[in-house]
């Protein structure tokens, strides 16, 4: 390939040197970065007991296990007999419905709690520094402790069953949404609020006609997003005895009912996707309504 522009060898040498100078610093930096990562990985491997030899020896287990998920007890593919695959459809549907209901109740009550607390956590509504700080620390605590840990504790206090799961979701949702709601409230335009008070409106009128029209669509949108997350969360509450489909799934995984595992997981995936799709449409409509 002949180059179109002739460059003298003298100049090309200078060019090449400049280029190498420019890249070598960057290259050294990347190398350093890479070696730090490798070091961290090696230390992590030792701590996490990763044994490559054992891994390769058992590598066949992976495909074997996931393959078996796709076969019924009688050795036939699950696709050959969907009725047999989903033999527990009715039982599982009831459990799945319970799971969705847990997510719904937990999200709604949690959002309500967050709604009550978010005004106390926003600097432009609440003047007292201590009230704001305390509310924020409380919300932070509620969302930093994983919900399954709350569920473990609530199972002891409230007994086995969905009540503990709902309460765990509620606390976590309140913490997560409280923060987001407070951020929305802090970013509102204060002019409508001032307008309402200038025309003689009281505190309730200010919140109802000045603040609420600015924030409600954001609140609902965040709430729906949280509902999606909570459906996934509710599906595993059963692992610690806090109700929902997790209990059934745990049993079938522990007892090696392969086709049941795949059937239940498929049901969870489909319902999560459906809910994602529905809430996304509702959220888009809300956003459209706001910008209109």
């Amino acid at each position: 390939m002949a180059s179109a522009v002739q460059i003298s060898s003298e100049r090309s040498k200078i060019l090449l040197k400049n280029y190498q100078d420019a890249t070598s610093a960057k290259r050294r930096q990347s190398l350093l970065f890479l070696s730090v990562i490798v070091l961290v990985v090696i230390i992590s491997c030792i701590i996490a007991e990763v044994r490559p030899a054992l891994f390769w020896k058992n590598a066949g287990n992976f495909t074997d296990y996931f393959g078996r998920l796709m076969f019924l007890d009688n050795g036939q593919s699950v696709l050959s007999d969907p009725a047999e695959w989903f033999w527990g459809l009715k039982k599982w549907s009831i459990r799945l419905f319970e799971t969705l209901l847990m997510a719904y109740v937990g999200t709604l009550l949690g959002a309500f709690g967050a709604f009550l607390l978010c005004f106390a956590a926003s600097k432009n509504i609440t003047r007292s520094f201590w009230v704001v700080a305390m509310t924020r620390r409380f919300l932070e605590f509620s969302r930093t402790v994983p919900e399954i840990v709350f569920a473990l504790i609530f199972v002891v206090a409230f007994g086995l069953g969905p009540v503990a799961g709902v309460l765990a979701i509620l606390i976590h949702t309140m913490g997560a949404l409280g923060k987001l709601f407070a951020e929305v409230v802090e970013n509102i335009d204060m002019k409508p609020v001032e307008g309402v008070s200038a025309s003689g409106g009281g505190w309730l009128a200010r919140v109802r006609f000045g603040a609420l029209p600015q924030i409600w669509s954001n609140f609902v949108s965040y709430g729906l997003l949280r509902f999606e997350i909570n459906v996934r969360g509710a599906a595993v509450m059963g692992f610690v005895g806090a109700g929902g489909i997790g209990q059934t799934l745990l049993e079938s995984i522990r007892k090696f009912y392969y086709s049941d595992v795949s059937a239940i997981i498929l049901m969870i995936i489909i319902s999560v996707m459906l809910i994602d799709a529905i809430t996304e449409r509702v959220r888009h409509r809300l956003i459209g309504e706001e910008s209109r």
């Binding site: 296990y65 996934r232 969360g233 595993v236 799934l249 995984i253």
Partner: peptide
């Protein structure tokens, strides 16, 4: 993404 980390953990425990 539809399957929670805890579910994956249970499945991988059966494998490894």
């Amino acid at each position: 993404r539809g399957v929670d980390t805890l579910i994956w953990a249970l499945i991988w425990i059966n494998v490894v």
